[in-house]
């Protein structure tokens, strides 16, 4: 595919050919989708949440469908930081695409440990701190709901990271801007939002939750308006780069997120229904720029704000 300079965006640590990346947990470590299309088409790749040591994840069922969305409670199944460094990142290194390494943990030391293990990997462009995984006990969600804890964790990670650090914000809070400001104050280089919304479903036949984990994270088009609102709000209080996500399915959705104030976007659940969602959107973006009469995609950033 031809490179289109009108789509190139540069975020801290992430020089992107276009503003699109698959979201963490929706692309594993790229091997499967690499069989379907050339990963070089992507702007960046956010890899599956990585913990200090390997995790097996939750019992099944791990997913349940919901109106225009899905609940998942995978539980951070991953091979652990060393496994990711030694087995997964070298595969992705064969592509000219920066990696956004998603980091999860139960304790601050675990986050620090993961970052130390991965920070020297040449293709890791930046880290994304998952302070909002709803699916594991002590899965970091505590860090995502308390501004002071989020700031402290950000500081500790920044101390050991040689790469820019993005903090992935949880929507399961009363005021997302308070967390955004707190992590910015602690030195975050960027933000990504939103993570999934906590939800559940109950089976009327068994009278039990559908998910073995009882609750899970809601994703898909159902959460798009919430994501847009939170991004819109956060953009009012910070100029940090924002990677936006939450129900993006189409090129039009990408434009809408740009207008709400993001610098780049991540596509999550849409990969599951359409494995070609990312390359399809990327190929459609130039025509949309022409339709909108903008010379570069970054010119759309935050242009959807109400006139003051």
């Amino acid at each position: 595919m031809m490179r289109d300079p009108r789509l190139e965006v540069t975020l801290p640590g992430l020089p992107m050919k276009n503003p699109l990346m698959p979201a963490s947990g929706c692309f594993a470590f790229g091997r499967e989708y690499a069989e379907l299309y050339d990963l070089n088409e992507l702007g960046a790749i956010a890899i599956k949440g990585t913990t200090g040591t390997a995790r097996l994840g939750n019992p099944t069922p791990r997913v349940a469908e919901t109106p225009s969305g899905m609940l998942n409670a995978i539980g951070l199944q991953n091979p652990g930081a060393k496994g990711v460094r030694d087995e997964e990142l070298p595969f992705l290194e064969t592509y000219d695409v920066p990696v956004l390494a998603n980091v999860s943990g139960s304790r601050p030391e675990e986050y620090v440990d993961v970052v130390k293990t991965l920070t020297d990997a040449p293709n890791v462009g930046a880290f994304e701190l998952n302070i909002s995984c709803p699916n594991v006990k002590e899965g970091g969600i505590h860090f995502g709901t308390d501004p002071a804890a989020a700031a402290e964790l950000t500081k500790e990670v920044k101390r050991v990271s040689t790469k820019p650090v993005y903090v992935k914000l949880s929507p399961n809070v009363t005021d997302v801007t308070a967390i955004a400001r707190a992590v910015e104050g602690a030195g975050a280089d960027g933000l990504s939002l939103i993570n999934t919304l906590l939800g559940t479903r109950i089976d009327w036949e068994t009278r039990k939750p559908v998910l073995a984990n009882e609750k899970g994270g809601l994703s898909g088009p159902a959460i798009k308006p919430i994501a847009l609102r939170m991004i819109y709000d956060v953009r009012q209080v910070t100029d940090l780069p924002i990677i936006g996500m939450g129900g993006i399915q189409s090129t039009e959705d990408v434009i809408e997120f740009m207008l709400a104030g993001v610098d780049a976007v991540a596509v999550g659940t849409a990969n599951f229904s359409n494995p070609f969602a990312c390359p399809n959107i990327i190929r459609e973006l130039p025509a949309w720029l022409e339709r909108l009469g903008v010379e570069h995609i970054r010119h759309l950033r935050g242009q959807g704000e109400a006139a003051v």
Partner: peptide, 28 residues
């Protein structure tokens, strides 16, 4: 099993190995 992606990415449809030491992806 209930599946998400069907191609081995999302890790929704796993089953435990007999020795309970790891998982297999049913879809892939």
């Amino acid at each position: 099993e209930r599946m998400g992606c069907g191609v081995g990415v999302c890790l929704a449809c796993v089953c435990e190995t007999e020795d309970r030491s790891s998982y297999r992806k049913i879809c892939r």
